[in-house]
Amino acid sequence: MNVSDIVKELDLTVFTGEDYLSREIYGGYVSDLLSDVMGFSSEGDVWITLQTHKNVMAIASLKEHAAVILVKGFKPDQDTINHAAEEGIPILGTHKKTFEISGELYSLLKK
């Protein structure tokens, strides 16, 4: 499954990274603690979070995440968008809460 599949299936907003939606997804990680994500997420994960600042992209890029999903209608800061564009990692968004979107992504990835 790649990022464009989940954008379609979960009706996600694409804030940036239109050109990188072919990135392959291997799993997901849900956390707002950056050290937790740094220490325990994996390459190819979709990271679900409510953090919107630039350091999110530093971590997503160092960990080679497939994409980031911001929850509850949060929008990325402008410098986060700029950094994401440089790194080629899509930032996606949903109005759903973390629990709901995580459950939906989990079911989708398990198929």
Binding site: D32, L33, L34, S35, D36, M38, G39, T49, Q51, H53, N55
Partner: peptide, 11 residues
Amino acid sequence: MGFGAGMGLSN
């Protein structure tokens, strides 16, 4: 910001 969870040094 999501830092300061006390996991840095152990990571």
